[in-house]
């Protein structure tokens, strides 16, 4: 068989479709070795058949490829073929600046917290100190006012000072009365009266026309004695102070008289 006879015999086609007998296949191999340009002839037949096969192709199920890839490449993670994963690209330069900014803001936050706490503590301390100072000032203001009132009474030109001397019962006791001649107002200075026993209170009496009249209770709160305003009397024969029960009595308890005077 010449080369041309071989080509037209159809043996190459049988060989390409895969149905040549063993003997025919051996013969084809021989001719291919003998005439290498027959390889090109065979290639064209194969390509035609390949295109024919491709034209008839049927896609396997979508899940099939993944199964196959897992079988052939077991344990490899990139065998999944269903959906491609798109990874976000890290931005090279930006990330450092971002990290720097993040670190800076954290540090600033910490500094701010510490500063806030310190300032808050200082504010609190200051507020406490201010309160104490204000209380002290208030107290001093009060005593100042009381003292200036005392002074006003004592320096009043109409004030007639009356000294009440201690009775036999309490010879040490002394009280002073400032009696305003123009208005009849009576002020008493209980500074030198003895300490009041619990449940008791000093009461001032004005003796008018031989009768003792209640002239008011003397408050000796917190042990601070100040000149205080009593009831007013246009005229009086004498003044006396008795120790009475708290709130006072309608009539003086004569044996509890501490100081008295006659005008």
């Amino acid at each position: 068989m010449t080369k041309e006879e071989f080509i037209s015999s159809g043996l190459l086609e049988l060989y390409a479709t895969g149905i040549s007998s063993q003997e025919e296949s051996r013969m084809v191999q021989e001719y291919l070795t003998k005439y290498p340009d027959l390889l090109e002839e065979l290639k064209q037949i194969e390509i035609s058949l390949e295109k024919y096969a491709q034209a008839n192709s049927i896609a396997p199920a979508a899940s099939f490829k993944e199964k196959l890839m897992q079988r052939v490449f077991p344990g490899e993670e990139d065998n999944k073929v269903t959906a491609p994963v798109i990874y976000m690209k890290k931005q090279g330069g930006g990330s450092f600046i971002f990290k720097l900014l993040a670190a800076a803001s954290v540090i600033l936050l910490l500094v701010s917290i510490i500063l806030n706490y310190t300032i808050y503590r200082k504010y609190h301390d200051t507020k406490d100190a201010l309160q104490i100072a204000q209380q002290k000032m208030e107290q001093q203001d009060k005593s100042n006012r009381a003292m200036s009132e005392d002074l006003n009474v004592m320096t009043n030109k109409y004030a007639q000072p009356v000294v009440l001397s201690g009775t036999a019962k309490s010879p040490e006791a002394v009280a002073k009365i400032f009696w305003m001649k123009n208005t009849g107002q009576v002020y008493v200075d209980p500074t030198n009266l003895p300490q009041v026993p619990a449940g008791k209170q000093y009461q001032l009496w004005a003796i008018v026309d031989g009768k003792p009249l209640d002239a008011g209770m003397i408050t000796t709160k917190k042990g601070i004695y100040h000149i205080q305003k009593m009831k007013s009397f246009g005229k009086a024969d004498a003044f006396a102070i008795t120790l009475e029960k708290e709130g006072g009595s309608p009539t003086p308890t004569m044996d509890a008289m501490i100081v008295s005077t006659k005008l």
């Binding site: 015999s9 159809g10 086609e13 390409a16 064209q44 037949i45 024919y52």
Partner: peptide
Amino acid sequence: IKTRMRAAILELKKIL
């Protein structure tokens, strides 16, 4: 069969 197959593939080639 050989010649029939050749004819078939020649027709295929011609179409392609």
